[in-house]
């Protein structure tokens, strides 16, 4: 089965998401590189996202496009990236998600991907 692993964490918490120039950031990146290598056969894709300060929310109402600065909802944890993974079942998907570095400090939400075949 195909799952999306959505990575949520508090982007304003320096300990959880340190500055990209810091040493701590390097340690987290090393964790992600190791995760990618360890699970190369299961990972079908994924991206890291810039912080929500760079986000734009788009809505079309009555034919008019309305853009708003920032994410749609204010929450403590923010979507910081995602993977698309292939796993035999939910147990296997949980086992993979538990290796994502931010599972230690944030939350990984696993969602089955709809198969439209």
């Amino acid at each position: 089965m195909k799952y999306a692993a959505l990575i949520y964490s508090d982007e304003h918490d320096e300990a959880v998401n340190p500055d990209p120039t810091s040493e701590a950031f390097g340690a987290i990146m090393a964790g992600y590189i190791k995760f990618g290598e360890d699970n190369a056969n299961s990972i079908e894709g994924g991206e890291a996202l810039e912080p929500t300060a760079t986000a734009t929310s788009v809505q079309v109402r009555d034919g008019e496009t309305i853009t708003t600065d920032g994410p749609f909802a204010e929450t403590k944890e923010h979507l910081g990236g995602f993977y698309i993974i292939e796993a035999a079942d939910l147990d296997a998907a949980v086992a993979i998600a538990a290796q994502i570095p931010h599972s230690q400090t944030g939350t990984i939400e696993i969602r089955p991907v709809i198969n439209f075949d």
Binding site: Y3, A87, A88, D89, L90, D91, I110, P112
Partner: peptide, 10 residues
């Protein structure tokens, strides 16, 4: 069924 909870002995 949708999330793929398996019928297995852990």
């Amino acid at each position: 069924s949708t999330a793929g909870i398996p019928f297995v002995i852990p």
